[in-house]
Simulated assay, not measured.
Amino acid sequence: MTDRLLVATRKGLFELHADNQGRWTLGEPQFIGEPVSMVLADPRDGSLYAALNLGHFGVKLHRRRAGMADWEECAVPVYPPQPPEETRVSDGANASADNAAPPRPPVPWTLQQIWSLEPGGPDEPGVLWAGTIPGGLFRSGDGGDTWELNRALWDRPERREWAGGGYDAPGIHSVLVDPRDSRHITVGVSSGGVWQTPDGGATWRQGSEGMEADYMPPERRGDPNVQDPHHVVQCAANPDVLWTQHHCGIFRSTDGATHWQRIQAQPSSFGFAVAVHPREPDTAWFVPAVKDQYRVPVDGKFVVTRTRDGGRTFERFSNGLPAAPAYDLVYRHGLDVDESGTRLAMGSTTGGLWTSADGGESWDLISAHLPPVYCVRFGREARPPSRRRALTLRTLDGR
């Protein structure tokens, strides 16, 4: 069972450790006061990575190698110079004359945020993948010392039609490396759909057939290039099964993202977070909300839903979560399940952090007063704790 939990927040990175009884211990925050947009514990060599979005001071990436106490700054993805034709207003590339997308300002070729960070396969030591805003996919072959933009995806004509989903510019928030083949990669774009490469990024295909964008005119509702998957996950034991929490509902694929099926759920099919069981492809978790201008739990009731039959039925769980009215929202990367498939962690925009040891059926409050949570990730401990003052937090009965 995993013994470390990383929590990236608006005001720093928090690292928690589990003892033999599964009780969590919280260490001193790292990067206190700074927005940490993404965190990664590399299972191959034990290195930790933290991406910071410092606004006026730019995007930074820090690395802490296994066995070391201190962080070191490493390189961040850098876009190449923007050609003149990419500074003109788009005329709706790849759209028909009758249904052309309205012109929109060009996307600056400037890094705004590292929104996803994933390791390459076990046969690719040092390889990292970073998904960014504004919609670039970058590869590092040396553990973050250097980065290269994947031009095959960036130069696709369809990219000019991608739009922001929550942010002004489009972004790649999900990067999935197939455990059977490290060259087979799936990415999720808000808003640009799902894309896949079978050859390490040399060629790409759209993988959004069956998704439906209700916010588009009827004739473009099924257009794969305008879909807004909020988060995409893949079952480790059966990588042909993928789930996505889409802006317009829940979708599931059982054929490697060749086709997707829409799934109806109660109390809502809208949300941002999704997690899939590592060994049971029919089991997935969601945190439902009311969409668009609201983005709060339905009727102020904060719940987690789980399906164990591929989306035919859903269970609702609230034991240990705040009683109504509660308006916690869970972001795309705010829900995670560990390798056992029974322990989950969840962090909210109001600074709540919970863990579950029974597949989401009940939850323990770890803290109600963290900064807004951007990302939670499980990972194995790679070194004995050092240079940190531990604080054990007791769970609160009935919360």
Results as ranks from 00 to 15, higher is better:
residue 59 V to W: 00
residue 88 R to N: 15
residue 66 A to E: 11
residue 77 P to T: 03
residue 92 G to L: 01
residue 99 N to G: 12
residue 80 P to G: 11
residue 55 G to M: 02
residue 99 N to R: 05
residue 88 R to A: 08
residue 85 E to P: 07
residue 74 C to Y: 05
residue 90 S to A: 05
residue 86 E to A: 14
residue 60 K to F: 01
residue 97 A to V: 08
residue 88 R to L: 04
residue 58 G to V: 00
residue 77 P to N: 14
residue 84 P to F: 04
residue 92 G to T: 11
residue 62 H to A: 12
residue 96 S to L: 13
residue 65 R to T: 06
residue 54 L to A: 02
residue 88 R to D: 06
residue 81 P to A: 07
residue 58 G to N: 02
residue 74 C to H: 05
residue 92 G to K: 02
residue 58 G to P: 00
residue 90 S to W: 02
residue 87 T to C: 14
residue 82 Q to M: 08
residue 88 R to C: 07
residue 61 L to E: 06
residue 65 R to P: 01
residue 73 E to R: 04
residue 82 Q to G: 14
residue 60 K to S: 09
residue 91 D to T: 07
residue 54 L to G: 09
residue 65 R to A: 06
residue 90 S to K: 12
residue 93 A to S: 14
residue 94 N to K: 10
residue 71 W to M: 13
residue 62 H to F: 04
residue 76 V to K: 05
residue 61 L to T: 04
residue 99 N to W: 03
residue 54 L to K: 04
residue 72 E to C: 09
residue 56 H to Y: 14
residue 90 S to M: 01
residue 78 V to Y: 06
residue 68 M to D: 15
residue 85 E to K: 06
residue 90 S to E: 00
residue 85 E to Y: 03
residue 54 L to R: 01
residue 62 H to T: 09
residue 87 T to H: 07
residue 59 V to E: 00
residue 87 T to Y: 07
residue 79 Y to M: 11
residue 56 H to C: 09
residue 60 K to H: 03
residue 86 E to K: 10
residue 91 D to F: 13
residue 61 L to W: 01
residue 59 V to P: 00
residue 94 N to P: 10
residue 93 A to C: 13
residue 97 A to H: 06
residue 69 A to H: 13
residue 55 G to P: 00
residue 72 E to I: 13
residue 85 E to G: 13
residue 62 H to Y: 08
residue 67 G to S: 12
residue 80 P to M: 08
residue 60 K to L: 07
residue 71 W to N: 04
residue 67 G to V: 09
residue 75 A to C: 04
residue 74 C to F: 05
residue 55 G to S: 03
residue 83 P to M: 05
